[in-house]
Design a protein around this nucleic acid. Sequence first.
DNA 1: TTTTAAACGCAACCAAGTTGCATTTGAAAG
DNA 2: CTTTCAAATGCAACTTGGTTGCGTTTAAAA
Lengths: 138, 138
Amino acid sequence: MDMFAETLKQKGLKATKFRKTLLKTFSDCNSSLTTNEVVKNLEDRYNKATIYRAIYSFEKNGIIHQVPDAKGLSRYAICMDNCSRGIHHHLHAHLICNRCNQTYCIQEISVPSLSNTYGLNIENAELTLKGNCRSCRL
Amino acid sequence: MDMFAETLKQKGLKATKFRKTLLKTFSDCNSSLTTNEVVKNLEDRYNKATIYRAIYSFEKNGIIHQVPDAKGLSRYAICMDNCSRGIHHHLHAHLICNRCNQTYCIQEISVPSLSNTYGLNIENAELTLKGNCRSCRL
DNA sequence: TTTTAAACGCAACCAAGTTGCATTTGAAAG
DNA sequence: CTTTCAAATGCAACTTGGTTGCGTTTAAAA
């Protein structure tokens, strides 16, 4: 549990018991989690408002990043890249599986670089794919 | 108003007064509209449930397509491509403007073709850009 | 003109997410 | 090792976006 505490402090967040648990939850997940899935996992022990606030601050401090969701819910995955406060730099695509509705980070597919195309001053691009994930493809 | 009636019938929808108004609303808009913006426009004349149901059926029948929204709301734009029931084929990117939070279809930028990359069986790809729209760029 | 499935209006409901405020706690300072 | 206090948490009430069931109206085919 102490490596989670380390990560949290390094990102400038107080390492509470709850936050270590939350970080472990995301860290253990090989795909992504909706806020509600987290709430369902932890609501017997922690309050909904606390969970929402912590997820918000994890996102803001580069610990997790938002990923698209099949039904438009808030969904997050742990940052594999070395993100920091206010600066996420994910260049990978996201796959929404048509069967299990999970969202996966696909590190192997990167988003096209379009920074100043047509003078649109693009500072971020997201590539979202719909298909079948490895588990559901069988 | 009769060209709107034509479009509706052609897409297999009954051409009610409300639906013609709704189609005109999307047709007149050069960017996109959230469901709520439509509700605010029309709620003095039409019921919220009716509006939600009509938008759902417009989407399903290839009249409008969902576009990403800065705050995660449901947002739609008219189909410029010739879409039909259950079959949308939009290959263009979408731009979310950082300043006005509007979403625009960018016909000039197309999404990469990735159909069977890595065996993921990709049947749809979305490219979402964040930057500044033409009006806000000044 | 008649008929009827589809569309509409109303009201109640649901789920996701937010807010204000009182209480608790991690960790820095003494 | 204690004290201190800003930051984090719990609780409860609330807001917003969206949905559902059902009775009534209406477009358009016969």
